[in-house]
């Protein structure tokens, strides 16, 4: 059946209507996608802000930790040395020249030890500067400091390179994670041995800290309020796009592995 001109004209009209409706949907899709892009950008900016806040908090915590260590050292170490020096000085009897010489030699030794301690503390005060020289040096310095107490046998294996990223913020957060884990070991684990291992695995830096302490129930600790430290470790690792795996069983020590891509 041939189509009449009237029908063809109607068809053209109908086609034109369809062709008019199509751009409406197209524009709507573009606008919808654009709105999603905006939302994504907002989320990204919130993430950047969170990272900045977290970085600031981390920097403050690193400083706090340094000051705490200094306070303990001043009280327990240098304070003791100086007290001993004072006592020795006050006990000197100038008439007994032989004993006095012995005591002066002891005072000289005590003063030299105090000076050495003060120098070490001064280096500690520059921990931030130390971090700027590289994460691995900072970790090494912190472990060397711990070794002085003779409470732990520490084994540290680090990679050949000094730094794993140009992002100083990422290194600060990584260093703070290390400090938090070590603090937990000192306070709760009753460990005698600590193994720290830094490795490069498939474009990521893997920090493994293992101890031979009493261990703990990971799930139960994470659920309790006391598990905030562990929760923070996981949260901070996630902020720098990393992961934290916590593995521990009672009586068998614990292993915490932080993996951060770079």
């Amino acid at each position: 059946m041939p189509i009449s001109p009237k029908e063809i004209v109607s068809l053209i009209g109908l086609t034109s209507i369809v062709f008019l409706i199509a751009p409406i949907f197209l524009i709507r899709y573009v606008l919808l996608y654009n709105r999603k892009k905006k939302k994504h950008e907002e989320e990204k900016s919130i993430m950047v802000k969170t990272l900045e806040t977290e970085l600031l908090r981390t920097q403050m915590e690193v400083q706090e930790q340094t000051l705490k260590t200094i306070a303990y050292d001043l009280h327990d170490n240098i304070g003791q040395l100086l007290s001993l020096t004072t006592i020795t000085l006050s006990s000197i009897n100038l008439d007994d020249r032989a004993k006095s010489a012995e005591k002066i030699a002891l005072i000289e030794d005590l003063t030299a030890r105090s000076t050495k301690e003060v120098k070490a503390l001064s280096r500690m005060l520059h921990s931030e500067e130390l971090l700027s020289r590289g994460l691995f040096s900072a970790i090494e310095f912190e472990l060397d400091w711990m070794k002085r107490s003779d409470r732990f046998t520490i084994s540290f294996k680090k990679p050949a390179f000094e730094s794993f990223t140009d992002d100083a913020g990422k290194e600060t957060i990584m260093f703070r994670l290390f400090q938090e884990i070590i603090n937990n070991i000192i306070q709760h684990s009753k460990a005698t041995e600590i193994f720290v291992n830094l490795d490069q695995v498939d474009g990521a830096l893997k920090l493994t800290i293992r101890d031979n302490g009493v261990g703990f129930d990971v799930d139960a600790t994470l659920q309790r309020k006391t598990g905030m430290g562990l929760y923070n470790i996981k949260k901070r690792a996630a902020i720098i796009n990393g992961t934290a795996s916590i593995d521990s069983t009672r009586g068998a020590g614990s292993v915490i592995t932080i993996t951060v891509p770079y």
Partner: peptide, 26 residues
């Protein structure tokens, strides 16, 4: 991200699209 609802270029192009696409059949 660009606020397209306030974008002069976006509305100019959208106007052109309506006109040239809508007139295709004609």
């Amino acid at each position: 991200y660009e606020p397209l609802l306030q974008s002069a270029e976006f509305w100019w192009v959208s106007g052109a699209l309506f006109f040239y696409f809508g007139s295709t059949a004609c």
